[in-house]
Write a protein that binds this DNA or RNA. Structure first.
Length: 245
DNA sequence: TCCCAGGGGCCGA
DNA sequence: TCGGCCCATGGG
């Protein structure tokens, strides 16, 4: 077992399966909890509408707490606006107003419009065929992490999204040669992504859980101001924590 | 009051 | 290429 597999197993046994990606439109349905997290079924998303919802969420959650994203998505669902066709019928101001709780609403309104145009213009996506990563990256408003999140969580492609949490965690664990910055640089991004994909089984369910587990771990223990007491990775972490433990 | 949150684009050096 | 800045609401 390599180091990354060990970390994965420790996080999984500590926090359990995370049930990502939450599908707000299915909250409280059988197999989903009140937030839309599934209960161990990786066959979701299973429809065009659900894949689009994942992609919308991936944009709305950029540098934003999911709770606020949930509010924005609920606003769209309430008026049955969560489809490429309906989103494009809105003008940017109307859309911005609906997604206001997610922050950056003017930028994100533009991004969602671009996303909707892409979904409408790509017939294969309608049948569940994943778009090319390069296609997504060509859309204004979709960067590396958002593209990989859409492909992993929306289309079950084995790509590992690298977020700020991952870089911070790896930095503290001393993983990787030159993960020396918490800033998002494209070279750093690809280096970390390939490192994970080279060291974990190429299984979308593994990447799904690992990314979600890192987010959870980063909220509970490996926060900006770390809470090292009780950290499941403490034994293998070289980070000098300041809580005296 | 300040920090942080499941980033990305733009611009000047 | 890179560093700095902008975008913005909401919770702790």
């Amino acid at each position: 077992m390599n180091r990354l597999e060990k970390i994965y197993n420790l996080l999984l046994s500590s926090y359990g399966k995370q049930g990502w990606w939450p599908i707000v439109s299915r909250a409280l349905e059988p197999g989903f909890d009140d937030m839309g997290y599934h209960r161990g079924n990786y066959d979701y998303p299973s429809s065009y509408a659900e894949r689009f919802e994942v992609a919308v969420g991936a944009i709305l959650t950029q540098n934003t707490a999911w709770k606020n994203v949930e509010r924005a998505i609920s606003n769209l669902l309430k008026d049955e606006l969560l489809s490429p066709e309906r989103l494009l019928e809105l003008n940017e101001k109307e859309l911005a107003n609906l997604i206001l709780p997610s922050g950056y609403y003017n930028q994100k309104a533009k991004k969602l419009k671009n996303l909707a145009r892409f979904f409408l213009g790509n017939l294969a996506v309608k049948d569940g065929v994943p778009p090319l990563r390069e296609e997504l990256l060509g859309i204004w408003g979709i960067g590396y992490e958002t593209a990989d999140s859409i492909l992993l969580y929306g289309f079950n492609m084995p790509l590992f999204p690298v977020d700020a949490y991952t870089k911070r965690l790896f930095l503290r664990l001393g993983i990787g040669e030159k993960v020396d910055s918490e800033n998002s640089l494209s070279q750093d991004y690809e280096r970390v992504r390939l490192y994970v994909e080279d060291n974990l089984r190429a299984d979308y369910r593994v990447y799904n859980e690992f990314h979600a587990l890192i987010v959870e771990h980063s909220k509970v223990h490996c926060r900006a101001r770390p809470l090292c007491e009780g950290c499941p990775l403490l034994d293998m972490c070289g980070y000098r924590h300041q809580d005296g433990s």
